[in-house]
């Protein structure tokens, strides 16, 4: 495994050792195949972001030359960036995959939005409740998610195969010990499994992989002049005319990009001129703030991610 020291195979020939990205890729593929073999109705949660893009590429690899034997599910809030919707539909079409878009009908009826209802209610009703609805409605017993353990402290202990109760709750005490590559994906009636093939990837691994594999990503990750306003210390892009402007607030064009993607009113942009993949990676390596800082939902309370997880947020 040490770089540069070729191993000998048992027949005597020299073998090139695997790099860390090759190992991560092989591990993720193993996880996906195991999950598909052990479930009745799997689905892949597709959030249109860079982690989803990597996860999708790994799925294409895992089952090649077959198509991934599951549909993609996008739990929509109607408040994503317009470029995300365009990218999502194009990706599903080009890869020839089934795409299910679920919008919580109650949210549609009530017109839930982050401005009038706040980011916590908005996220809880559209995403947490929406996800539960979609899984129940289609009877999915296993869902792939793109979460990484390095994203947040409470995720460091998440299993690769995470069991959820029939109410979709995550109970830290009921999680199963995970040894070797022997994943236990068995469930009782009503229980579901969330599977995280990217558990051991870091943000840098994801970017490196996108770079090596030439994986298409939403253009919002690249810097471009975009109309933004500054609110609560965050640069918010005015993506459409649904965004109410404060008195005296005028959007200005600035060169910005996004490190993570979500609902546009809740996602902070960073000032940047990085418009190529290499520039982005350079900025990322030299940056001094963590990835999740751009997400409004994590700031609510100290252990907020853990709470969300117990309630069923991915």
């Amino acid at each position: 495994m040490t770089g540069g020291h070729p191993q000998r195979s048992w027949t005597g020939a020299a073998v090139k050792p695997l790099t860390h990205l090759q190992r991560l890729e092989a591990e993720s593929i193993h996880i996906m195949r195991e999950a598909v073999a052990e479930s009745e109705r799997p689905v892949m949660l597709y959030s249109v972001g860079k982690d989803s893009a990597v996860m999708l590429r790994l799925a294409m690899k895992a089952f090649y030359p077959s198509k991934p034997p599951f549909p993609l599910l996008h739990v929509d809030t109607t408040w994503k960036f317009r470029e995300m919707y365009a990218f999502r539909d194009r990706t599903a079409r080009e890869l020839g995959l089934d795409l299910i878009v679920h919008r919580n009908p109650e949210c549609v009826r009530l017109g839930i939005n982050p401005f009038e209802h706040g980011s916590a209610t908005h996220t809880d009703m559209w995403k947490t409740e929406g996800l539960k609805q979609a899984l129940d409605q289609h009877g999915f017993d296993l869902a792939f998610g793109g979460a990484r353990r390095d994203e947040e402290k409470s995720r460091a202990k998440e299993r690769v195969f995470s069991i959820r109760s029939p109410q979709h709750r995550w109970d830290p005490k009921r999680q199963r010990p995970e040894l070797w590559r022997a994943y236990n994906a068995r469930t009782n009636p009503g229980e579901t499994v969330r599977v995280f093939p990217l558990s051991n990837w870091t943000e840098l691994d994801v970017w490196q992989y996108i770079n090596i594999e030439r994986i298409p990503i939403v253009p919002l990750y690249f810097a471009a002049p975009r109309p933004v306003v500054r609110r609560d210390g965050m640069l918010i892009m005015v993506d459409d005319d649904r965004m109410p402007l404060e008195p005296g607030e005028t959007p200005t064009k600035q060169s910005v990009r996004f490190r993570t993607l979500g609902c546009y009113p809740l996602t902070g942009a960073i000032e940047s001129t990085a418009d190529t993949l290499l520039d982005i990676i350079r900025e990322m390596l030299l940056t001094t703030t963590s990835e999740r800082q751009g997400r409004a939902i994590d700031h609510d309370s100290s252990a907020s991610m853990e709470k969300k997880k117990q309630e069923g947020y991915f």
């Binding site: 495994m1 090596i212 290499l278 990676i281 350079r282 030299l286």
Partner: peptide
């Protein structure tokens, strides 16, 4: 200590990173 190399030649830096092993 890698910062200056990242800033000056990201491509070479990444090429090196891709040969890393995993422990």
């Amino acid at each position: 200590h890698a910062d200056s190399r990242i800033a000056s030649d990201i491509e070479a830096y990444l090429a090196g990173q891709q040969e890393k092993s995993l422990l």
